[in-house]
């Protein structure tokens, strides 16, 4: 028996950017995508995206799947999978990429496809066909592994013109972030020094991420794509320790 492992099948949690469609009007989608990508062309290039069709499903709207994929690819994004919500109107079948189902619907599916242990449970109690899977079996069959990635720690100042990106993790800067510097993270950003450049957290769409800094003098702050420039930051918050976060889609800045 060989001691080395060739492949491993494991559950994992990954963060992807999702593209939520609120309309099926291709011209609107095209124009708005172009606008978004233009804000940070280098950042969006070749980024995998999940197409979130849940809103269109609710509206029972139709969409030209082929045109949609072409449009997304034209903007240099890589559609990898489509996601649907609780309802399925068959819309997703027109988009020719793999499908994942989110939320309550997913657990509903699990009930329809009993696991092995459920099978044995059924054998033992063949009369109980209305509710073949006891809840306790569900918890056994659904095993999720949480992978914690170490934060990216920068122990010197981030200078003008430098760019730092913490992929899938937190970014910690032990020093200042100079004007014209850019720090980006998929998770939270912590700065133990003045923030004078740009800081963008939750860039792949995580709206529960925050930015913390010891002196807010930033050119721009952004949480999950919601941004503010220095001009619109109230005078009384400038130069003070602050945290920046999203309160129901509203970018909020508070002193620490």
């Amino acid at each position: 028996m060989s001691s080395t492992i060739g492949v491993e099948l494991k559950g994992g949690m990954y963060t992807f950017m999702s593209l939520k469609l609120h309309t099926n009007d291709m011209s609107v989608i095209d124009a708005e995508l172009a606008d978004k990508v233009l804000q940070a062309p280098g950042f969006f290039k070749d980024t995998p995206v999940v197409i979130d069709l849940s809103v269109l499903e609710e509206q029972e709207a139709d969409i030209d799947g082929k045109a949609l994929l072409e449009c997304i690819r034209r903007h240099k994004l890589v559609p990898i999978v489509a996601s649907i919500g609780d309802r399925s109107s068959g819309l997703a079948s027109s988009v020719a990429i793999p499908l994942i189902e989110s939320g309550a619907r997913r657990s509903a599916l699990s009930r329809e496809e009993p696991s092995q242990s459920a099978d044995s449970a059924r054998k033992e109690a063949p009369s109980n066909t209305q509710n073949p899977i006891p809840d306790v079996d569900l918890s056994v069959s659904r095993e999720v592994e949480y992978v914690v990635k170490a934060p990216l720690l920068i122990d010197k100042p981030v200078r003008s013109g430098q760019q730092v990106y913490a992929r899938d993790t937190d970014l910690i800067v032990m020093g200042q972030v100079g004007p014209g510097a850019e720090i980006i993270a998929d998770n939270n950003i912590h700065i133990y020094g003045p923030l004078r450049g740009r800081a963008l957290c939750g860039v792949s769409g995580n709206t529960s991420t925050r930015i913390f800094c010891q002196s807010l003098e930033a050119e721009l702050v952004s949480v999950a794509g919601n941004y503010r420039m220095l001009e619109t930051i109230p005078e009384e918050l400038r130069g003070k320790p602050a945290q920046i976060w999203l309160d129901k889609d509203r970018l909020t800045i508070e002193p620490l």
């Binding site: 981030v158 200078r159 013109g161 004007p179 510097a181």
Partner: peptide, 13 residues
């Protein structure tokens, strides 16, 4: 000062 900050970054990298 900003240009000096930039050149410091280049020195570091």
């Amino acid at each position: 000062v900003r240009d000096s900050d930039r050149i410091l970054g280049i020195l570091q990298s």
